[in-house]
């Protein structure tokens, strides 16, 4: 049975496809702002930091995105607090706090009944997505996209020229924490598809690929979302066909797309760049 027939046949695969497509879109969109603000490390940190929140939510039986947002944002606040109130630089502060949160999360999860839960949270298992998970992801996805649509202007100016944004009275600090909140929500939505450990790849790789392909932010958002969806769907196909871990398959597809852009992008790809440089040399001679 091929992939297309299987999708028509099995409901679990339809859910997996829909969920991972949404994850591809929102990771792609939020990822653009993450890389343009130089916050790739922060993205990695926050995605790991949701773990204790997820564990506590499991124990209390509340929707796990509540706990995740709380622990993600709390970690972001701690990181900011430490770097602003000591000589510790932000990257160091990130390294300390997210590993602490992550370690705490692992301890909490060992108190829970099975270790397969931990494995699935860390590495994702998109084929086991339940209907309720799918709806959570779609709901989070819509909120994130709506937020980016509504605050596009503010996100653009505060990412591009923070000083000007601050000078005309935008609350740049709040925008930062707002983005951190969106980031945690995206992480939660991605838990089942790619898992905590690899979310950062979904955030950064499609956005970086798009960054090599365009000079306009709004185009970058669309291209990044499209690349995210492509990676998700192709990755899911590979995962299903060859019985491989879904998260890892999706991430590697995404990496291949990045490498294609890195070499062949018309403007930034290194092949055309060296060619242009050579042509220039010839002209000068």
């Amino acid at each position: 049975m091929n992939f297309i027939e299987a999708i028509a046949e099995y409901e679990f695969l339809q859910k997996a496809l829909l969920t991972s497509a949404m994850v591809g879109i929102i990771c792609g969109v939020i990822g653009c702002f993450i890389i343009l603000r130089g916050m790739a490390l922060m993205g990695d940190a926050i995605s790991h930091a949701v773990l204790p929140g997820v564990a506590v939510s499991y124990m209390l039986g509340i929707p796990f995105f509540v706990g995740a947002v709380i622990s993600g944002v709390a970690t972001a606040l701690c990181i900011g607090f430490i770097s602003q109130n000591s000589r510790i630089k932000q990257d160091i502060s990130i390294g300390i706090m997210f590993t602490a949160a992550f370690a705490f999360g692992i301890i909490l999860i060992t108190f829970m009944k099975s270790s397969t839960d931990l494995y699935h949270i860390l590495f994702g298992n998109v084929l086991a997505v339940r209907a309720s998970d799918m709806w959570t992801t779609l709901f989070i996805g819509l909120i994130v996209l709506l937020a980016v649509f509504l605050f596009y202007k503010e996100l653009l100016v505060s990412s591009f020229d923070r000083t000007m944004a601050q000078a005309y009275g935008l609350p740049v600090k709040w925008i930062h924490y707002f983005l951190m909140t969106l980031l945690t929500m995206v992480t939660v939505a991605s838990l089942q598809t790619v898992g905590i450990v690899l979310v950062v790849a979904m955030l950064i790789t499609p956005a970086a690929t798009a960054y090599l392909m365009t000079d306009r932010l709004w185009v970058m958002l669309y291209v990044s979302a499209l690349l995210g969806v492509t990676a998700s769907v192709v990755g899911l196909y590979i995962s299903f066909t060859y019985n491989l871990a879904s998260g890892a398959a999706i991430v590697l597809v995404s990496t291949i797309l990045f490498l294609l852009a890195f070499f062949f992008s018309p403007k930034q790809g290194i092949i055309w760049r060296t060619r242009r440089a050579k042509q220039k040399l010839l002209v000068n001679k």
Partner: peptide, 13 residues
């Protein structure tokens, strides 16, 4: 702002 405060690689026209 000063030139050095701007990210000149930012995808903006």
């Amino acid at each position: 702002p000063q030139r050095s405060e701007i990210d000149w690689d930012f995808p903006i026209t």
